[in-house]
Design a protein around this nucleic acid. Structure first.
Lengths: 109, 109
DNA sequence: TGGAGTACTCCGCATTGTGTAGTACTCTTC
DNA sequence: GAAGAGTACTACACAATGCGGAGTACTCCA
């Protein structure tokens, strides 16, 4: 089946989680997500999510030149982003718990 | 925050899980989902999902009259649906595990 | 007679992840 | 030094899917 639909609404959370540990630029965030197990994430999705989160006021950004290619646009969590990460994590955990209960095999009556 | 995006791609799975135990009609599936904790699911989403799953060949359907209102359109899992439920559950479990690892607080180095 | 609860359909919209194309820089290789 | 791979980003159109709202229709109760 298709994992891309599962990402809806969760990619935000995944990106925030990846940025919690250290600032990162798009291409780097993409690699971190894939290394974490989200191997099917498309690059355009990550760049789009970073732009959305920045537009929502959850991220700071700054550009740094690189010696291995084009300049890099770094993003980092600000207080709004850290709060969003915390609340989204709770929402996700609650949702995942609900689903796991729903998916439990029922015992025969 | 908004839970509706989290449902994307998962509502299929939730509906299949609810139908695993017993056949059900749309309005009933809606109530079962809400009782299971998915309280924000909209009715149009459930009816749409049932239609989609039926069109995909995962469900059987039959109409029964009711004494408490209009007729009811029952849906039930067929072998394709049962297989889809099994595979989707595995996909979901794997995805949820990946996310929960990603969301773990890192220990200070 | 009107309203609430039940049960379903249809239509258009909003969100969001994806594919494709394009730009541009660095480094290696023939 | 031209070609190609890897890095890094942007823009655009598209597809999937959950949702809101309107509409239909049936039963029961006040």
């Amino acid at each position: 089946m298709d994992t891309s639909q599962l990402l809806k609404g969760v990619l935000d959370l995944a990106v925030l989680a990846v940025l919690r540990d250290a600032d990162g630029y798009g291409y780097d965030v993409l690699r971190r997500l894939r290394a974490a197990g989200l191997e099917d994430v498309a690059d355009a999705s990550v760049y789009g999510t970073l732009r959305r989160l920045f537009a929502a006021g959850a991220l700071t950004t700054y550009v740094q030149p690189s010696e291995e290619g084009p300049h890099r646009k770094y993003y980092g969590l600000n207080p709004v982003g850290r709060d969003l990460l915390k609340r989204s994590t709770q929402t996700w955990n609650h949702f995942a718990d609900t689903m796991s209960v729903l998916l439990l095999e029922k015992e025969a009556a």
